Amino acid sequence: MSTEITSKLNRLLSTQPTGVVLCSSWLADNGYSVDLQQRYKKSRWFESIGTGALIRHGDQVDYLGAVYAMQTQLGLSVHPSGKTALALQGKSHYLELSPKHAQLFGNQGEHLPLWFKKRDWGLNVKSTLTNFLPPEGGLTEISHKQFKVKVSDPARAIMECLYLSPKSQPLVEVYELMEGLNNLRPASVQKLLEACKSIKVKRLFLYLANKAGHDWMRYLNLDNIDLGSGKRAIVAHGVYVPKYQITVPKALEAMV
């Protein structure tokens, strides 16, 4: 390879961390043409993991390395969420030594690239695209390998769990997760609850937080949170909670 091509390669290798995906479109936008990418692959500097995506040759890239690319190179809002986000921050009672599932949320209308959806990441990755919360609210950064990714902070993560409940996420389990969140920042919780578009999520969140006896609940201004009107049956044949006008599982209401 010419000196110029080698120099560009060295610049790419020095500026991008190991363990991440490199999107072909992003590379092209940054001066690495499709032809140049092919030359790098032929020289075994990079290898393809699907149409439109490369990794360093022999690099070990997990799903978070793909999330990094989608966030920083493609500008997508997709992020680890729910129980996955809590586990990544050490907030989950259900930590797995070797996680078998990962939950991602992204904004409604976004399209996750085919290379991401078709790739076997070694675990079951589920993606939910919804606008029930604003894409930029309630996120925090975590370090992973040599890079950082945005994940849901604990308050947003619980709301994402509640969005999936009760069909995909048992409410008893969400309550046990909520019990451990005794140091949430009221201002952050307030902002998320005001922005949340799901009446079910807001009522359940306040119900679980109140049931857990969290002190930060006292600092919320419920007058500014739209809780809708009318009764909501979260489950059939449950127990009705008049304060929040919801019907919840008997096992949950019985927990102390």
Rank of each mutant, 00 (worst) to 15 (best):
G213P: 01
G138V: 10
H144T: 08
K243D: 08
W115D: 05
K91H: 14
L204M: 15
V61H: 07
S165H: 07
L193W: 01
W121F: 10
V20N: 04
N210K: 14
H57N: 12
K250L: 09
A251S: 12
N182K: 13
E4S: 07
P242H: 12
M255R: 13
R39L: 08
E110H: 04
A69W: 02
K148P: 00
A28R: 15
G228D: 06
D120M: 11
P17V: 12
S2N: 13
S24P: 01
Y68V: 04
E136I: 12
L204W: 05
N221I: 09
Y240C: 06
S165P: 02
W121N: 09
T15M: 14
A212T: 03
S127H: 11
M159H: 05
L129K: 13
V78M: 06
G50H: 09
H101D: 07
K243Y: 05
G19K: 14
V20D: 03
V78P: 00
A87Y: 01
S98P: 00
G52H: 10
S14R: 15
T140A: 09
P170Q: 15
F205M: 13
Q108Y: 13
G180P: 00
S81Q: 07
A254P: 02
Q103P: 00
L177M: 08
K202Y: 03
E4L: 08
S14W: 14
S2G: 07
L171Y: 02
S24E: 10
T128Q: 10
M217N: 10
R203T: 01
Q16F: 07
L220K: 03
S168N: 15
K167L: 11
V34A: 13
H237V: 06
V172G: 13
E47A: 04
A195G: 05
G19M: 11
I55N: 02
L97H: 12
K197C: 01
T6H: 11
A209K: 00
K8F: 05
L12A: 15
S229R: 13
G50Q: 12
I5C: 12
L74M: 09
N107Y: 06
G31P: 02
L164D: 04
N221V: 09
I142L: 09
L181Y: 00
H93C: 08
G180T: 09
Y244S: 02
D223S: 14
A53Q: 14
P113A: 12
R185W: 00
T128H: 09
R185E: 03
E160P: 01
L129D: 08
K145W: 11
K148G: 03
L192Y: 06
A66D: 01
Y63Q: 07
A212K: 04
S198H: 12
Q37G: 02
A85D: 04
T51V: 15
S81K: 08
A53K: 14
T84I: 05
M70I: 05
G65R: 12
S25M: 13
V201Q: 01
L192V: 08
A28D: 14
L184E: 04
P242S: 12
E96N: 08
A66K: 02
A87K: 01
Q16H: 10
G52N: 11
K231E: 14
L177Q: 08
T72E: 11
A102N: 00
R119P: 00
L22N: 06
